[in-house]
């Protein structure tokens, strides 16, 4: 009897727990299709393949009618195209929201506060070792018009010190049919950044800031 009771209690708790989660899905796309590694995409005269996409979403906050309803417990979420699980952000609470705010990248305070575990662990390849600081957004691949060796481009966008402070804050209105899905429109990045001119960015500098400025424009709430 006691056994049955505890079983019921546990299953009840589990079901409540499942219902209580709020999920946010991150979908990197190229034009209409979800982005895949090592697949060929065309834009203008360029054929592009991607070998790596990783970026941080940090200080994620949910709002309803302009008031804060929830702040993500995790300080930073590492989104990694090679790890599908990372596309799902699960908040252990049920709530409604009509607006979200977050940072693309890692703030300066975290950048000067030493070592962290989990998504911020330097083993994730998102930390510069020769010069302290997180890489906020990392995109690597090949583009036919890229004049580098093997047409490879490396965009490692980071920097926590002015004038090369590369973190960007973003707010998205979630009044849509699909308020729980954030799309990252990579093709738009290539419309704004000429990969034949800017292809190796691996330190905090003007080129990094140029790309960082475009990043907030490619994050959108899914429409349908």
């Amino acid at each position: 009897m006691r056994c049955l009771f505890s079983f019921l209690l546990v299953s009840f708790l589990l079901s409540v727990n499942a219902q209580c989660d709020t999920q946010l899905t991150i979908t990197p796309k190229f034009k209409a299709n979800p982005l895949e590694l090592n697949k060929t995409y065309t834009i203008g005269k360029d054929t592009i393949t991607f070998t790596n996409l990783k970026f941080y979403i940090s200080n994620l906050q949910y709002f309803k009618n302009d008031s804060l309803v929830y702040t993500s417990v995790k300080k930073a979420h590492l989104i990694d195209l090679s790890n599908e699980q990372s596309f799902q952000i699960n908040e252990k609470k049920s709530f409604e929201f009509d607006n979200i705010k977050f940072n693309i990248g890692i703030d300066s305070l975290t950048n000067v506060s030493g070592i962290f575990e989990g998504d911020l662990d330097p083993v994730n390849g998102m930390y510069w070792t020769w010069q302290s600081g997180y890489i906020n957004f990392k995109l690597e691949g090949y583009a036919t018009h890229c004049p580098s060796r093997n047409n490879k481009f490396n965009w490692h966008i980071g920097g926590y010190l002015e004038p090369f402070y590369a973190m960007r804050e973003i707010a998205l209105d979630c009044n849509s049919n699909k308020p729980n899905e954030i799309v990252i429109q990579l093709d738009e990045l290539f419309k704004k950044i000429d990969v034949s001119k800017i292809y190796n960015v691996m330190s905090p500098n003007e080129k990094a800031i140029h790309i960082a400025d475009v990043l907030p424009k490619i994050f959108k709430v899914a429409k349908e």
Partner: peptide, 10 residues
């Protein structure tokens, strides 16, 4: 180049 002792050894 390094801003904190804990990340220095990297």
């Amino acid at each position: 180049a390094i801003n904190h002792l804990d990340v220095q050894a990297l």
